[in-house]
């Protein structure tokens, strides 16, 4: 539904609506580390801070890939955690492939009672040998043969979801 760079603004609006109606619950927003090159994202970080939106939890899927190559080559974030922190967000960095770490980070974010961000380090295409960290797979679909191979690898590796 949401186009790149625009998600956090919408999540903030939903968080604001909850806040003004005294509704409980959290709004989760997932963005990629490429799309946050868009300026609107930083406008939204300021909005999140202005309205103290502690009911919005922002995830950044940091896989360091965007269409033209590596994020660090196209427009590096340098120290992403420090940058997000400077907008007044409680910021954690975790292994995005660990459900356990995700769960713990969400709990800590809720306890922080302030706008928060979880930077999830991930490997794009994880668990499939020919896809892992390959920028070519950013926006491509599998043919029948590739699909069979991918499913076989995921089953063989008994890809861990803890």
């Amino acid at each position: 539904m949401v186009h790149f760079g625009q998600g956090l603004s919408i999540a903030n609006g939903m968080g604001l609506a909850k806040k003004i109606s005294n509704e409980k619950g959290y709004v989760y927003c997932l963005v990629g580390d490429g799309e946050i090159e868009e300026g609107q994202f930083y406008e939204a970080l300021m909005t999140m801070n202005k309205f103290s939106l502690s009911n919005v939890i922002l995830f950044i899927d940091k896989n360091n890939l965007q269409i033209d190559g590596k994020v660090e080559d196209i427009k590096s974030h340098r120290n992403l955690k420090k940058k997000i922190e400077s907008f007044g967000l409680y910021t954690q960095e975790i292994n995005g492939h660990s459900f356990d770490e995700i769960k713990k980070a969400i709990n800590k974010a809720k306890e922080a009672k302030m706008p928060s961000c979880i930077i999830a380090n991930t490997i794009k295409g994880k668990g499939i040998s020919f896809m892992e960290n390959e920028v070519a797979w950013h926006g491509k679909s599998l043919n029948d043969e590739e699909y069979k191979q991918a499913m076989k690898e995921l089953e063989e590796n008994d890809y861990e979801i803890n």
């Binding site: 625009q6 956090l8 603004s9 919408i10 999540a11 903030n12 609006g13 939903m14 968080g15 604001l16 609506a17 909850k18 109606s21 300026g39 609107q40 406008e43 939204a44 300021m46 909005t47 202005k50 309205f51």
Partner: peptide
């Protein structure tokens, strides 16, 4: 809600509120 000089963010935030 005064979102400041950031119209793109204002539209998004306003849409989030409307979707609620």
């Amino acid at each position: 809600f005064d979102i400041g000089i950031s119209e793109q963010d204002m539209i998004g935030t306003a849409c989030g509120m409307a979707l609620s």
